[in-house]
Amino acid sequence: MIDSDVFDFVERCRKHGAAASLLTDLLETVKKIGFEHLILSGVPLGGQKLAPMVELNGWPNGWFERYVEAEHAAVDGVCIYSAKTLKPFLWSEVPAKWSQTEASRRVAGEATEFGIWSGFAVPMLSIHHWQSVMSFASSAKICKLHPRQQAQLVTMAVYAGMTIQALSNDDENGEGLLTDREKEVLLWAAAGKTSSETSQILGLTERTVKWHTTRAREAFGVVTTTQAVVEAVRRRLIHP
């Protein structure tokens, strides 16, 4: 891939009106340096679920479903490290204390069943999540990128992330959805507090706390309090 490929992609980003077309374009471009799959997602923290945080899903059929169902994000060394750095990295560069655990090695082993052996991750700041990451995946057993290629991938990842944010900003603002008390209750839920514990902290009855969480779930159209917390964090309505 040459630099003009990157700049052409950046130019096209302004013309994409949907995530699907952006994903297709990006996948076609990065194939030129050996990456067949990619995903852009918020990095789950504190028990957050991955699925609601995914913004571009170019993983192989079946792998995303298995990854989410098994809650691999909680033990995957690449995912864990993505929350701890803003420096782009090869998957092989993840420190051993996260990449060499039994659980992380199991995730990596399962990924090979879907043709994923190596990759390159670009952590980045996001207005929708505390931190996001675009992870490029390859069927090559060893991913080799020279500095120029890494810079090309970082540039495309950042512009793709900016485009996704711009596409979602207009209709996912969320201002006015929650009352201050509902935000407060979700904030303590994000900290792992039960309804009983939150009631003691806020000086409310447990019934009142549950009522506020129910109203918050209804505001987002979700079933669980955890999903409401994820939505509130994603929209920057609370800051755990």
Rank of each mutant, 00 (worst) to 15 (best):
M1I: 11
E102D: 04
K31L: 12
H146N: 13
L167I: 10
S139I: 07
A108N: 11
L50E: 07
K49T: 13
W117Q: 05
G192N: 08
T198Y: 03
A103V: 00
A70F: 10
T85F: 04
H72E: 15
E110V: 13
A228H: 07
E28D: 13
V229W: 05
L45K: 14
D170L: 11
S118N: 01
E206V: 03
L23R: 14
S41E: 11
P95Q: 03
F64R: 12
T179V: 00
A191F: 10
K84C: 13
V43F: 05
S168E: 12
E231R: 05
G58V: 09
K84P: 00
L145V: 10
F35P: 03
N57F: 07
L45S: 11
A103G: 00
S82P: 07
V158Y: 10
G47T: 10
S196D: 12
W211H: 10
L187P: 00
I80G: 05
H128N: 00
A160S: 15
T214M: 06
T226M: 09
V154S: 07
Q152V: 00
S92A: 14
F7K: 02
T163D: 02
L90W: 00
S195M: 01
A96F: 05
Q100E: 13
V229R: 01
F64W: 13
H37F: 15
V54G: 04
T214E: 06
S92L: 06
T194H: 01
E184F: 02
E206C: 06
L145H: 11
R236V: 00
H72N: 13
L40P: 09
I238G: 08
I2G: 09
V10G: 08
F9H: 02
P44K: 02
G174W: 04
A140S: 14
P123Y: 08
M53L: 15
T205R: 06
G176D: 06
F220N: 01
L45T: 07
E11M: 06
S21P: 02
A228V: 07
Q152A: 13
S138P: 08
S195C: 10
L178P: 05
T194A: 02
C79W: 11
I201A: 09
P44G: 09
K31V: 02
A51D: 10
G17Y: 08
V233G: 00
G119L: 01
A83Q: 09
S82A: 15
T208W: 07
W59P: 02
K183S: 06
E184Y: 01
R236H: 11
Y67F: 15
K144H: 08
R235H: 11
R207C: 04
T208V: 10
V68G: 06
A20F: 04
L26K: 03
A140N: 14
G62H: 07
Q165N: 01
W59C: 11
A74R: 14
A73Q: 15
S135M: 05
N57H: 07
K183R: 15
H146A: 06
V154T: 14
A19Q: 14
K31E: 14
Q131A: 12
A137K: 10
T101I: 01
G119S: 09
A232E: 06
K144G: 00
A190Q: 02
V30D: 08
S126L: 11
L125P: 00
H37G: 05
S92G: 12
L40C: 12
A19E: 15
V10S: 03
D76V: 10
R215Y: 02
R234K: 14
